[in-house]
Nucleic acid binder design. Structure first.
Lengths: 207, 207
DNA sequence: CTATGTGAATTTATTCACAGCA
DNA sequence: TGCTGTGAATAAATTCACATAG
Protein backbone atom coordinates (compact mmCIF):
# COMPACT_ATOMS: atom_id res chain seq x y z
CA UNK A 1 0.00 0.00 0.00
CA UNK A 2 3.10 2.15 0.15
CA UNK A 3 2.28 3.87 -3.11
CA UNK A 4 -1.26 4.98 -2.28
CA UNK A 5 -2.41 8.41 -1.33
CA UNK A 6 -2.62 8.64 2.45
CA UNK A 7 -6.19 9.18 3.72
CA UNK A 8 -6.71 12.42 5.60
CA UNK A 9 -8.32 10.49 8.39
CA UNK A 10 -5.16 8.48 8.82
CA UNK A 11 -3.17 11.69 9.22
CA UNK A 12 -5.70 12.89 11.74
CA UNK A 13 -5.17 9.73 13.79
CA UNK A 14 -1.38 9.64 13.70
CA UNK A 15 -1.02 12.23 16.49
CA UNK A 16 -3.41 10.16 18.58
CA UNK A 17 -1.15 7.13 18.20
CA UNK A 18 1.90 9.26 18.84
CA UNK A 19 0.44 10.58 22.07
CA UNK A 20 -0.30 7.07 23.27
CA UNK A 21 3.07 5.72 22.19
CA UNK A 22 5.03 8.50 23.86
CA UNK A 23 3.25 7.70 27.08
CA UNK A 24 3.77 3.99 26.60
CA UNK A 25 7.43 4.58 25.85
CA UNK A 26 7.84 6.70 28.98
CA UNK A 27 6.48 3.80 30.98
CA UNK A 28 9.46 1.86 29.71
CA UNK A 29 7.45 -0.36 27.41
CA UNK A 30 9.58 -1.61 24.53
CA UNK A 31 6.92 -2.92 22.23
CA UNK A 32 3.16 -2.82 21.94
CA UNK A 33 0.65 -4.76 19.87
CA UNK A 34 -2.01 -3.08 17.78
CA UNK A 35 -4.55 -4.55 20.18
CA UNK A 36 -2.98 -3.02 23.27
CA UNK A 37 -2.47 0.31 21.55
CA UNK A 38 -6.10 0.15 20.45
CA UNK A 39 -7.33 -0.19 24.03
CA UNK A 40 -5.06 2.60 25.08
CA UNK A 41 -5.98 5.22 22.49
CA UNK A 42 -9.56 4.26 21.72
CA UNK A 43 -9.16 3.24 18.06
CA UNK A 44 -9.79 -0.25 16.61
CA UNK A 45 -6.75 -2.48 16.19
CA UNK A 46 -7.44 -3.15 12.50
CA UNK A 47 -7.73 0.56 11.90
CA UNK A 48 -4.35 1.07 13.51
CA UNK A 49 -2.72 -1.66 11.41
CA UNK A 50 -4.31 -0.34 8.24
CA UNK A 51 -3.13 3.19 9.01
CA UNK A 52 0.44 2.06 9.55
CA UNK A 53 0.34 -0.15 6.46
CA UNK A 54 0.04 2.93 4.26
CA UNK A 55 3.59 3.76 5.19
CA UNK A 56 4.94 0.21 5.03
CA UNK A 57 5.60 -2.32 7.72
CA UNK A 58 6.47 -0.82 11.06
CA UNK A 59 5.89 -3.90 13.17
CA UNK A 60 7.15 -7.39 13.76
CA UNK A 61 4.70 -10.25 13.25
CA UNK A 62 4.08 -12.18 16.38
CA UNK A 63 5.46 -9.37 18.54
CA UNK A 64 3.97 -6.00 17.73
CA UNK A 65 5.48 -2.57 17.26
CA UNK A 66 8.69 -1.30 18.79
CA UNK A 67 7.49 1.79 20.62
CA UNK A 68 10.58 3.90 20.19
CA UNK A 69 10.95 3.07 16.52
CA UNK A 70 7.27 3.73 15.87
CA UNK A 71 7.45 7.09 17.63
CA UNK A 72 10.34 8.06 15.39
CA UNK A 73 8.48 6.94 12.26
CA UNK A 74 5.31 8.84 13.08
CA UNK A 75 7.26 11.96 13.98
CA UNK A 76 9.03 11.74 10.67
CA UNK A 77 5.80 11.32 8.73
CA UNK A 78 4.21 14.26 10.51
CA UNK A 79 7.40 16.29 10.06
CA UNK A 80 7.74 16.66 13.79
CA UNK A 81 11.29 15.33 13.88
CA UNK A 82 12.83 18.76 14.23
CA UNK A 83 11.84 21.32 16.83
CA UNK A 84 9.48 23.84 15.31
CA UNK A 85 9.00 27.39 16.43
CA UNK A 86 5.52 28.78 16.49
CA UNK A 87 4.08 32.24 17.08
CA UNK A 88 1.06 33.16 19.14
CA UNK A 89 -1.16 36.08 18.22
CA UNK A 90 -3.51 37.35 20.90
CA UNK A 91 -2.51 37.06 24.54
CA UNK A 92 -5.93 37.18 26.14
CA UNK A 93 -7.36 34.53 28.43
CA UNK A 94 -7.16 31.75 25.90
CA UNK A 95 -3.85 32.92 24.45
CA UNK A 96 -2.25 33.05 27.89
CA UNK A 97 -3.45 29.53 28.60
CA UNK A 98 -1.92 28.40 25.33
CA UNK A 99 1.39 30.05 26.27
CA UNK A 100 1.38 28.25 29.58
CA UNK A 101 0.31 24.92 28.13
CA UNK A 102 3.06 22.35 28.63
CA UNK A 103 1.78 19.85 26.08
CA UNK A 104 3.34 21.36 22.96
CA UNK A 105 6.85 20.25 23.79
CA UNK A 106 6.19 16.54 23.36
CA UNK A 107 5.44 17.17 19.69
CA UNK A 108 8.55 19.30 19.26
CA UNK A 109 6.89 22.68 19.35
CA UNK A 110 8.27 25.78 20.90
CA UNK A 111 5.98 28.79 21.20
CA UNK A 112 8.79 31.25 20.72
CA UNK A 113 7.01 34.54 20.05
CA UNK A 114 3.81 36.22 21.17
CA UNK A 115 1.99 39.24 19.79
CA UNK A 116 -0.86 41.41 20.99
CA UNK A 117 -2.45 44.69 19.99
CA UNK A 118 -3.04 46.02 23.49
CA UNK A 119 -0.46 48.50 24.86
CA UNK A 120 -1.28 47.06 28.28
CA UNK A 121 0.21 43.75 27.20
CA UNK A 122 2.98 44.75 24.79
CA UNK A 123 6.33 44.55 26.53
CA UNK A 124 5.04 42.42 29.38
CA UNK A 125 6.66 39.08 29.93
CA UNK A 126 4.30 36.11 30.03
CA UNK A 127 5.74 32.66 30.55
CA UNK A 128 9.23 33.93 29.74
CA UNK A 129 8.11 35.43 26.46
CA UNK A 130 7.99 39.16 25.87
CA UNK A 131 4.75 40.17 24.16
CA UNK A 132 5.43 42.11 20.96
CA UNK A 133 3.32 44.55 19.02
CA UNK A 134 1.21 42.90 16.29
CA UNK A 135 2.51 45.54 13.94
CA UNK A 136 5.76 43.60 13.85
CA UNK A 137 4.12 40.37 12.70
CA UNK A 138 5.98 40.77 9.42
CA UNK A 139 9.27 39.91 11.16
CA UNK A 140 8.17 36.26 11.34
CA UNK A 141 9.47 35.61 7.85
CA UNK A 142 13.06 36.56 8.63
CA UNK A 143 12.82 34.75 11.96
CA UNK A 144 12.00 31.58 10.09
CA UNK A 145 8.64 30.99 11.80
CA UNK A 146 5.97 29.45 9.60
CA UNK A 147 3.44 28.25 12.17
CA UNK A 148 1.08 30.47 14.13
CA UNK A 149 -1.64 30.14 16.71
CA UNK A 150 -4.42 32.69 16.46
CA UNK A 151 -6.31 33.53 19.64
CA UNK A 152 -7.73 36.94 18.86
CA UNK A 153 -11.38 38.07 19.02
CA UNK A 154 -13.55 37.01 16.12
CA UNK A 155 -13.64 40.45 14.50
CA UNK A 156 -9.84 40.50 14.22
CA UNK A 157 -9.33 36.94 13.05
CA UNK A 158 -9.48 37.43 9.27
CA UNK A 159 -7.16 40.44 9.32
CA UNK A 160 -4.74 38.60 11.58
CA UNK A 161 -4.72 35.60 9.27
CA UNK A 162 -4.02 37.82 6.29
CA UNK A 163 -1.12 39.48 8.07
CA UNK A 164 0.26 36.07 8.99
CA UNK A 165 0.03 34.83 5.42
CA UNK A 166 1.81 37.96 4.26
CA UNK A 167 4.49 37.20 6.85
CA UNK A 168 5.07 33.84 5.23
CA UNK A 169 3.16 31.70 7.72
CA UNK A 170 2.12 28.37 6.19
CA UNK A 171 0.07 26.80 8.95
CA UNK A 172 -2.45 28.35 11.34
CA UNK A 173 -4.13 26.93 14.41
CA UNK A 174 -7.19 29.12 14.77
CA UNK A 175 -8.98 29.47 18.10
CA UNK A 176 -11.23 32.29 16.92
CA UNK A 177 -14.83 31.17 16.47
CA UNK A 178 -15.06 31.84 12.77
CA UNK A 179 -14.00 30.62 9.38
CA UNK A 180 -10.93 32.33 8.04
CA UNK A 181 -10.25 32.43 4.33
CA UNK A 182 -6.63 31.97 3.25
CA UNK A 183 -4.82 30.98 0.04
CA UNK A 184 -4.94 27.27 -0.69
CA UNK A 185 -1.25 26.81 0.05
CA UNK A 186 -1.90 27.74 3.70
CA UNK A 187 -3.37 25.13 6.01
CA UNK A 188 -5.77 26.23 8.72
CA UNK A 189 -7.06 24.08 11.54
CA UNK A 190 -9.81 25.70 13.57
CA UNK A 191 -10.66 24.84 17.15
CA UNK A 192 -13.90 26.36 18.37
CA UNK A 193 -14.36 25.17 21.90
CA UNK A 194 -17.95 26.32 22.19
CA UNK A 195 -18.84 24.66 18.92
CA UNK A 196 -17.49 21.34 20.10
CA UNK A 197 -19.53 21.60 23.28
CA UNK A 198 -22.53 22.41 21.07
CA UNK A 199 -22.25 19.00 19.48
CA UNK A 200 -22.70 17.12 22.74
CA UNK A 201 -26.40 17.54 23.54
CA UNK A 202 -27.37 15.94 20.24
CA UNK A 203 -25.87 12.66 21.38
CA UNK A 204 -27.48 12.71 24.77
CA UNK A 205 -30.80 10.87 25.06
CA UNK A 206 -33.68 13.11 26.10
CA UNK A 207 -33.45 14.38 29.68
CA UNK B 1 -34.25 11.83 2.81
CA UNK B 2 -36.12 12.56 5.99
CA UNK B 3 -36.11 8.93 7.03
CA UNK B 4 -32.42 8.25 6.74
CA UNK B 5 -29.90 7.99 9.49
CA UNK B 6 -28.14 11.35 9.83
CA UNK B 7 -24.43 11.18 8.98
CA UNK B 8 -22.12 12.05 11.84
CA UNK B 9 -20.32 14.47 9.58
CA UNK B 10 -23.54 16.36 9.04
CA UNK B 11 -23.97 16.74 12.79
CA UNK B 12 -20.39 17.94 13.04
CA UNK B 13 -21.13 20.65 10.48
CA UNK B 14 -24.42 21.88 11.90
CA UNK B 15 -22.72 24.02 14.58
CA UNK B 16 -20.58 25.56 11.83
CA UNK B 17 -23.70 26.59 9.94
CA UNK B 18 -25.30 27.80 13.16
CA UNK B 19 -22.31 29.98 13.97
CA UNK B 20 -22.43 31.56 10.53
CA UNK B 21 -26.19 32.01 10.58
CA UNK B 22 -26.22 33.63 14.00
CA UNK B 23 -23.69 36.12 12.74
CA UNK B 24 -25.61 36.64 9.52
CA UNK B 25 -28.82 37.07 11.49
CA UNK B 26 -27.19 39.65 13.78
CA UNK B 27 -26.25 41.63 10.69
CA UNK B 28 -29.95 41.89 10.02
CA UNK B 29 -29.95 39.55 7.07
CA UNK B 30 -33.34 37.91 6.61
CA UNK B 31 -32.44 35.16 4.21
CA UNK B 32 -29.33 33.57 2.79
CA UNK B 33 -28.68 31.22 -0.11
CA UNK B 34 -26.67 28.04 0.26
CA UNK B 35 -24.06 29.67 -1.98
CA UNK B 36 -23.64 32.73 0.23
CA UNK B 37 -23.61 30.64 3.37
CA UNK B 38 -21.00 28.43 1.72
CA UNK B 39 -18.67 31.34 1.12
CA UNK B 40 -19.21 32.51 4.65
CA UNK B 41 -18.56 29.27 6.51
CA UNK B 42 -16.16 27.52 4.16
CA UNK B 43 -18.30 24.52 3.18
CA UNK B 44 -19.54 23.71 -0.35
CA UNK B 45 -23.05 24.83 -1.20
CA UNK B 46 -24.18 21.38 -2.30
CA UNK B 47 -22.87 19.94 0.95
CA UNK B 48 -24.94 22.46 2.85
CA UNK B 49 -28.09 21.66 0.87
CA UNK B 50 -27.53 17.94 1.29
CA UNK B 51 -27.02 18.32 5.02
CA UNK B 52 -30.24 20.27 5.44
CA UNK B 53 -32.12 17.86 3.21
CA UNK B 54 -31.68 15.10 5.78
CA UNK B 55 -34.05 17.01 8.00
CA UNK B 56 -36.49 18.04 5.30
CA UNK B 57 -36.86 21.26 3.39
CA UNK B 58 -35.76 24.32 5.30
CA UNK B 59 -35.48 26.68 2.37
CA UNK B 60 -37.54 28.37 -0.30
CA UNK B 61 -36.65 27.68 -3.91
CA UNK B 62 -35.54 30.74 -5.76
CA UNK B 63 -34.91 32.61 -2.49
CA UNK B 64 -32.78 30.67 -0.04
CA UNK B 65 -33.07 30.02 3.66
CA UNK B 66 -34.74 32.26 6.21
CA UNK B 67 -31.93 32.89 8.67
CA UNK B 68 -33.99 33.13 11.79
CA UNK B 69 -36.06 30.05 10.96
CA UNK B 70 -32.95 28.06 10.08
CA UNK B 71 -31.24 29.05 13.32
CA UNK B 72 -34.27 27.78 15.23
CA UNK B 73 -34.31 24.51 13.28
CA UNK B 74 -30.62 23.78 13.80
CA UNK B 75 -30.86 24.63 17.49
CA UNK B 76 -33.75 22.26 17.79
CA UNK B 77 -31.92 19.45 16.02
CA UNK B 78 -28.83 19.92 18.17
CA UNK B 79 -31.03 20.18 21.27
CA UNK B 80 -29.70 23.63 21.96
CA UNK B 81 -33.13 25.22 22.18
CA UNK B 82 -33.11 25.36 25.96
CA UNK B 83 -30.34 26.87 28.05
CA UNK B 84 -28.09 24.12 29.32
CA UNK B 85 -25.99 24.25 32.43
CA UNK B 86 -22.51 22.80 32.31
CA UNK B 87 -19.87 22.12 34.93
CA UNK B 88 -16.16 22.78 34.67
CA UNK B 89 -13.65 20.54 36.40
CA UNK B 90 -10.13 21.91 36.76
CA UNK B 91 -9.65 25.64 37.11
CA UNK B 92 -6.03 25.90 35.93
CA UNK B 93 -4.84 28.04 33.07
CA UNK B 94 -7.00 26.38 30.47
CA UNK B 95 -9.97 25.96 32.79
CA UNK B 96 -9.90 29.62 33.75
CA UNK B 97 -9.81 30.59 30.10
CA UNK B 98 -12.82 28.38 29.48
CA UNK B 99 -14.67 30.04 32.36
CA UNK B 100 -13.95 33.45 30.91
CA UNK B 101 -14.79 32.44 27.36
CA UNK B 102 -17.81 34.41 26.14
CA UNK B 103 -18.61 32.14 23.20
CA UNK B 104 -20.67 29.52 25.03
CA UNK B 105 -23.69 31.74 25.45
CA UNK B 106 -24.58 31.88 21.78
CA UNK B 107 -25.22 28.14 21.85
CA UNK B 108 -27.28 28.38 25.02
CA UNK B 109 -24.66 27.15 27.45
CA UNK B 110 -24.13 28.42 30.93
CA UNK B 111 -21.04 27.26 32.79
CA UNK B 112 -22.75 27.26 36.13
CA UNK B 113 -20.36 25.36 38.39
CA UNK B 114 -16.62 24.93 38.70
CA UNK B 115 -14.57 22.41 40.64
CA UNK B 116 -10.93 22.06 41.55
CA UNK B 117 -8.85 19.91 43.85
CA UNK B 118 -6.47 22.63 45.02
CA UNK B 119 -7.24 24.25 48.40
CA UNK B 120 -5.68 27.39 46.93
CA UNK B 121 -8.53 27.61 44.47
CA UNK B 122 -11.49 26.17 46.34
CA UNK B 123 -13.70 28.95 47.62
CA UNK B 124 -12.21 31.55 45.31
CA UNK B 125 -14.54 33.33 42.93
CA UNK B 126 -13.54 33.21 39.29
CA UNK B 127 -15.74 34.92 36.75
CA UNK B 128 -18.56 35.11 39.25
CA UNK B 129 -18.41 31.42 40.01
CA UNK B 130 -17.26 30.05 43.32
CA UNK B 131 -14.86 27.16 42.85
CA UNK B 132 -16.03 24.07 44.71
CA UNK B 133 -14.16 21.04 45.98
CA UNK B 134 -14.05 18.16 43.47
CA UNK B 135 -15.17 15.91 46.28
CA UNK B 136 -18.64 17.35 45.80
CA UNK B 137 -18.85 16.42 42.14
CA UNK B 138 -21.59 13.98 43.05
CA UNK B 139 -23.97 16.87 43.67
CA UNK B 140 -24.25 17.44 39.93
CA UNK B 141 -26.97 14.85 39.64
CA UNK B 142 -29.37 16.60 41.99
CA UNK B 143 -28.46 19.94 40.44
CA UNK B 144 -29.60 18.62 37.09
CA UNK B 145 -26.29 19.13 35.31
CA UNK B 146 -25.44 16.53 32.71
CA UNK B 147 -22.68 18.25 30.74
CA UNK B 148 -19.13 18.75 31.95
CA UNK B 149 -15.90 20.25 30.68
CA UNK B 150 -12.76 18.50 31.89
CA UNK B 151 -9.59 20.59 32.07
CA UNK B 152 -7.51 18.66 34.59
CA UNK B 153 -3.97 17.31 34.15
CA UNK B 154 -3.66 14.12 32.16
CA UNK B 155 -3.05 11.89 35.16
CA UNK B 156 -6.34 12.95 36.71
CA UNK B 157 -8.48 12.79 33.60
CA UNK B 158 -9.69 9.20 33.77
CA UNK B 159 -10.60 9.41 37.46
CA UNK B 160 -12.38 12.69 36.88
CA UNK B 161 -14.36 11.21 34.01
CA UNK B 162 -15.40 8.27 36.16
CA UNK B 163 -16.55 10.55 38.94
CA UNK B 164 -18.53 12.58 36.43
CA UNK B 165 -20.21 9.51 34.99
CA UNK B 166 -21.11 8.41 38.50
CA UNK B 167 -22.59 11.87 39.03
CA UNK B 168 -24.91 11.29 36.09
CA UNK B 169 -23.03 13.36 33.53
CA UNK B 170 -23.92 12.29 29.97
CA UNK B 171 -21.61 14.44 27.87
CA UNK B 172 -17.99 15.43 28.43
CA UNK B 173 -15.84 17.95 26.62
CA UNK B 174 -12.33 16.76 27.42
CA UNK B 175 -9.37 19.11 27.22
CA UNK B 176 -6.95 16.64 28.81
CA UNK B 177 -4.47 15.24 26.32
CA UNK B 178 -5.53 11.63 26.61
CA UNK B 179 -8.22 9.15 25.72
CA UNK B 180 -10.75 8.62 28.43
CA UNK B 181 -12.77 5.45 28.62
CA UNK B 182 -16.43 5.81 29.56
CA UNK B 183 -19.58 3.72 29.21
CA UNK B 184 -21.07 3.78 25.72
CA UNK B 185 -24.04 5.84 26.84
CA UNK B 186 -21.72 8.74 27.65
CA UNK B 187 -20.46 10.90 24.79
CA UNK B 188 -16.95 12.33 25.00
CA UNK B 189 -15.47 14.91 22.67
CA UNK B 190 -11.77 15.47 23.17
CA UNK B 191 -9.92 18.63 22.24
CA UNK B 192 -6.16 18.28 22.41
CA UNK B 193 -4.77 21.60 21.32
CA UNK B 194 -1.19 20.38 20.96
CA UNK B 195 -2.34 17.43 18.88
CA UNK B 196 -4.16 19.67 16.46
CA UNK B 197 -1.06 21.81 16.08
CA UNK B 198 0.87 18.59 15.47
CA UNK B 199 -1.18 17.94 12.37
CA UNK B 200 -0.13 21.18 10.67
CA UNK B 201 3.48 20.53 9.63
CA UNK B 202 2.43 17.50 7.58
CA UNK B 203 0.48 19.75 5.25
CA UNK B 204 3.24 22.29 4.85
CA UNK B 205 5.52 21.78 1.87
CA UNK B 206 9.16 21.25 2.84
CA UNK B 207 10.85 24.28 4.34
C1' DC C 1 -34.88 32.64 -13.92
C1' DT C 2 -33.05 31.45 -9.39
C1' DA C 3 -31.94 28.46 -5.82
C1' DT C 4 -33.57 24.29 -3.33
C1' DG C 5 -33.81 19.31 -2.75
C1' DT C 6 -32.42 14.76 -3.93
C1' DG C 7 -31.55 10.35 -6.45
C1' DA C 8 -27.46 8.44 -8.70
C1' DA C 9 -22.51 8.27 -9.40
C1' DT C 10 -18.29 8.67 -7.43
C1' DT C 11 -14.95 8.94 -4.05
C1' DT C 12 -13.25 7.99 0.41
C1' DA C 13 -12.91 5.40 4.60
C1' DT C 14 -13.85 1.36 7.50
C1' DT C 15 -14.21 -3.36 8.39
C1' DC C 16 -13.34 -8.02 7.48
C1' DA C 17 -10.87 -12.17 6.86
C1' DC C 18 -6.98 -14.41 6.23
C1' DA C 19 -2.34 -15.16 4.06
C1' DG C 20 2.31 -14.79 5.62
C1' DC C 21 6.07 -14.03 8.62
C1' DA C 22 8.59 -14.39 13.28
C1' DT D 1 0.97 -19.86 17.74
C1' DG D 2 0.52 -14.68 17.74
C1' DC D 3 0.26 -10.63 15.55
C1' DT D 4 1.18 -7.97 11.40
C1' DG D 5 -0.01 -6.47 6.79
C1' DT D 6 -3.22 -6.12 3.09
C1' DG D 7 -6.42 -7.23 -0.74
C1' DA D 8 -11.39 -7.51 -1.05
C1' DA D 9 -15.98 -6.35 0.69
C1' DT D 10 -18.71 -3.14 2.86
C1' DA D 11 -20.15 1.16 4.50
C1' DA D 12 -20.18 6.11 4.61
C1' DA D 13 -19.68 10.58 2.77
C1' DT D 14 -19.13 13.68 -1.02
C1' DT D 15 -20.07 15.38 -5.43
C1' DC D 16 -22.77 15.76 -9.43
C1' DA D 17 -26.60 16.86 -12.31
C1' DC D 18 -30.96 18.07 -12.83
C1' DA D 19 -35.95 17.91 -11.88
C1' DT D 20 -38.80 20.91 -9.29
C1' DA D 21 -40.82 24.77 -6.90
C1' DG D 22 -41.31 29.83 -6.07
Amino acid sequence: MRYHRIPDETIRRLPIYLRGLLFSSEQGRESISSRDLADFVGVNSWQIRKDFSYFGGFGTRGIGYNTEKLVKQIKRILKLDVVKKAALVGVGNLGSAVLAYPGFRMYGFNIAVAFDISPMKIGRKINNIVVENVSSLWTLKKRGISLAIVAVPQHAAQKTAEALVKAGVKGILNFSPCYIAVPKKVKVITIDIAMDLARLPYYIPAG
